[in-house]
Computed example of a mutant assay.
Amino acid sequence: MPDNNVRIRLASPDFGEEEVDAVRRVLCSGVLTNGAENAAFGQEFADRHQARFGVTFCTGTTALQAMLLAEGIGPGDEVIVPSMTFVATATSVCHVGATPVFADIDPRTFNLDPVSVEARITPSTRAVMTVHYAGQPGDLDGLARVCDAAGLPLLEDAAQAAGAEYRGRPVGTFGRSAMFSFTPTKNITTGEGGIVLTDDPDLVERLQLLRNHGQTGLYQHESLGYNWRLTEMQAAIGRVQLRKLDVILQRKQLIAESLTQRLVGLPGLTTPYQVPVARGSRMLYTCLLPGIRDQVLADLLDQGIEARIYFPPVHRQPIFARREGGTRDPAALPVTESVASAMLSLPVHHQLTAAEVAEIADAVTGAVGRSTMSTHARPTPIGAR
């Protein structure tokens, strides 16, 4: 149920008459699945990210599962993942029968730390799955070196990172394959949906079989597959949304810069770190507020500003507390634990007005001041150097 007290939303999908017309066109065509819209959306998204192939899926989670199954990953295997992510990064590993092994993160980017990844590699490790937190790439150079040395594929959970770049190259092309998600909180959305990008034609064939019941011809099923298809209506919406992506990214960058200018230097708050060689998608605007986060969150919600904790660490989730081997030693994730206790994401969607951006900044400034006075906190920014 929507919260009627919220005045400034965390996210705001951008739908208009173009999307309505696209859906109408598909409905009138009579082809609602396995058609030209999916093929076009997959290729257009791949072209935008300088990949050879794009295979659409009904959700980002099924796309992650397909990536893993296409690599032959299953029972007895381990996949190294961050805990600072949405739960699907890890549960997709469980769904294929493998075990997620959590590695720690960089205190500034909240992305996988290559040193921590290297320390968790065992003879059972079959892949490393990195997440581009908030749409900002982490140390892809370092992760590539670790994976290459160990002979492991690097997989990208790029759910939040449509249009992001690392050293001038689009994300989604650094690993063997990459997943992007199109849920309503993403910069572009199809309601639900996902896509896998890859340059490997053999991998594409396996992904397509997994998506559609292992079918090679009408009622000819050569392998075990699933019904993981994206509808033609969603694909048509995705094609329209993709044409808006660059404008959305430009607008979000300006909004994030404005927020940073207003909040930088505020005692008790650390603004988001920007990787010098990367251009993120600004999917989230996540600050650190050690010692006062919960008070600030409550204050902002009282003022009708939808702030949120993105994300509670996966290794703390009950499902992994009950799963043997999944968490390993939670104490081995000190940076994740520290960041998780302080992080707070503020609204940064591209439809915010200048007045709303100023209101958010003023509300945060006031909330931090009140929280600091009430707790007499003297927080130290995480990762300060």
Rank of each mutant, 00 (worst) to 15 (best):
residue 329 D to T: 11
residue 375 T to I: 04
residue 204 V to W: 07
residue 372 T to N: 02
residue 181 S to W: 08
residue 314 V to H: 03
residue 333 L to N: 12
residue 76 G to Y: 01
residue 241 Q to I: 11
residue 346 L to T: 09
residue 130 T to Y: 01
residue 319 I to D: 09
residue 116 S to C: 08
residue 194 G to C: 06
residue 240 V to G: 01
residue 190 T to A: 13
residue 338 S to L: 14
residue 70 A to I: 07
residue 116 S to F: 06
residue 239 R to G: 00
residue 178 A to F: 08
residue 112 L to T: 02
residue 133 Y to P: 00
residue 340 A to W: 02
residue 200 D to M: 03
residue 310 Y to P: 00
residue 119 A to L: 08
residue 353 T to S: 15
residue 184 P to K: 08
residue 182 F to D: 12
residue 259 L to Q: 14
residue 358 A to Q: 14
residue 168 G to M: 09
residue 97 G to A: 08
residue 19 E to R: 11
residue 261 Q to G: 14
residue 166 Y to T: 06
residue 334 P to W: 04
residue 376 H to T: 04
residue 153 P to K: 05
residue 339 V to P: 04
residue 379 P to W: 01
residue 319 I to C: 13
residue 201 P to C: 04
residue 14 D to T: 12
residue 349 H to P: 07
residue 95 H to R: 11
residue 119 A to K: 14
residue 189 T to F: 00
residue 41 F to I: 05
residue 87 V to K: 04
residue 368 V to A: 01
residue 275 V to T: 14
residue 145 R to T: 14
residue 293 R to Y: 01
residue 185 T to P: 05
residue 276 P to A: 13
residue 274 Q to K: 12
residue 64 L to R: 09
residue 159 A to S: 15
residue 109 T to N: 01
residue 318 P to G: 09
residue 273 Y to H: 15
residue 289 L to Y: 00
residue 161 A to D: 08
residue 245 L to R: 11
residue 379 P to N: 05
residue 305 I to R: 01
residue 198 T to R: 04
residue 373 M to N: 09
residue 288 L to A: 02
residue 231 T to L: 00
residue 92 S to L: 08
residue 200 D to E: 07
residue 118 E to D: 12
residue 45 F to E: 12
residue 255 I to L: 14
residue 209 L to S: 04
residue 64 L to V: 02
residue 98 A to Y: 10
residue 290 P to S: 06
residue 215 Q to T: 02
residue 98 A to R: 05
residue 157 D to T: 00
residue 223 S to E: 12
residue 289 L to D: 00
residue 227 N to R: 01
residue 159 A to W: 04
residue 362 D to N: 10
residue 372 T to D: 04
residue 97 G to H: 09
residue 221 H to A: 03
residue 194 G to R: 00
residue 213 H to E: 09
residue 17 E to K: 13
residue 349 H to T: 06
residue 156 E to T: 03
residue 188 I to Q: 01
residue 316 R to M: 10
residue 180 F to H: 11
residue 349 H to I: 04
residue 169 R to G: 03
residue 187 N to R: 08
residue 162 A to C: 15
residue 30 G to C: 09
residue 176 R to W: 05
residue 97 G to T: 10
residue 298 A to V: 13
residue 356 E to W: 07
residue 298 A to K: 11
